[in-house]
Simulated assay, not measured.
Amino acid sequence: MRPPVGVILAGGQATRMGGGDKGLLTLGDTTLLGHVMDRLRPQVADMALNANGDPGRFADLGLPVISDSIEGFAGPLAGVLAGLDWAAAQGAETIVTAAADTPFFPCDLVPRLQLAAEGMAHPLALAATPDPERGKARHPTFGLWPVALREDLRAALADGVRKVVMWTDRHDGRLAMFPHEAAFFNVNTPDDLARAEAMQ
C-alpha cells in the first residue's frame, strides 16, 4: 500500500473553548497544531490542513490550507471530503486524518490503520480504543480514507449524512484498535488544556 497523505482536521467551531482556533493554543513550547504536525509528518507522504475562513492565519505553518466545499458547518465528513479532493489532485490513493486538538495521538497511527484495512478493495478504517462501558470507542476524526470513495461521500453529504460512522458503516469500515483508553485525548475545554500541560 502506498503511503497516504495526511490531513489535519481543524474546521471545528471550538464552542467549549470560547470559539476560535483550538489548534493555535499554546501547549509547551509550541501549539496544539505543532504537536499534531510533529506526530503526523513522519507517518505520511505529504500533509495539508483542513480549516475554514481566512487561511492567512495559518501561513507560518507552511502547509496547504484546504476549506470545506460543503456550505455551512457540516462536521468532520466535510473535512474528509476536502482532504480527499486535495489528495486526488496530488495523485494519492488514500488519506489519513488527524484532529487538530489531539496532541498525543499514537506515533503508529498510520501503520495500524493500514493493517486494519488490509485486503479491502477500498481501504477504510477508523481508530478505536477500549471503553469500560461500551466495549470500544471509535474516534471518527482519526481514519484512513480511500480517494476512490470521494464521490460517494460527496453524494452522502448532499443527502444530509453528517455522522462519520453512519457513512463508514455503509462501506464496512474496519476498526484499528489501540490499547490505551487515553490514546486520543483531545482538548475541548480550558481544563483539558491544563491536563494536556501536565501530560507532556
Score class of each variant (00 low, 15 high):
G23A: 09
L25D: 04
T26Q: 15
L27C: 12
L27E: 07
G28K: 04
T31S: 13
L32I: 06
L33F: 05
L33I: 08
G34K: 00
H35A: 10
H35S: 08
H35N: 05
V36K: 02
V36C: 03
M37I: 15
D38I: 00
D38R: 14
D38N: 09
R39Q: 12
R39W: 12
R41H: 01
R41C: 05
P42I: 12
P42N: 00
Q43Y: 03
V44T: 00
A45H: 03
A45W: 08
A45F: 05
A45V: 13
A45T: 00
D46K: 09
D46G: 13
M47N: 01
M47K: 02
A48F: 09
A48I: 13
L49H: 03
L49F: 09
N50T: 08
N50H: 15
N50G: 13
N50F: 15
N50Y: 15
N50P: 01
A51F: 02
A51G: 01
N52S: 14
N52K: 09
N52W: 05
N52Q: 08
G53Y: 07
G53L: 13
G53E: 12
D54M: 09
D54E: 12
D54R: 10
P55K: 09
G56N: 11
G56L: 13
G56W: 12
R57P: 04
R57L: 04
F58S: 06
F58C: 08
A59P: 09
A59N: 08
D60S: 15
D60N: 14
D60K: 02
L61E: 06
L61S: 07
L61Y: 11
L63C: 02
L63W: 00
L63R: 03
V65F: 06
V65L: 10
S67E: 11
S67V: 05
S67D: 08
S67A: 15
D68G: 13
I70W: 00
I70N: 01
G72F: 11
A74H: 13
G75W: 05
G75F: 02
P76E: 12
L77T: 03
A78W: 02
A78I: 12
A78N: 03
G79K: 04
G79E: 07
V80D: 03
L81E: 08
A82L: 07
G83C: 12
L84G: 07
L84A: 07
L84Y: 06
D85E: 14
D85C: 10
D85Y: 04
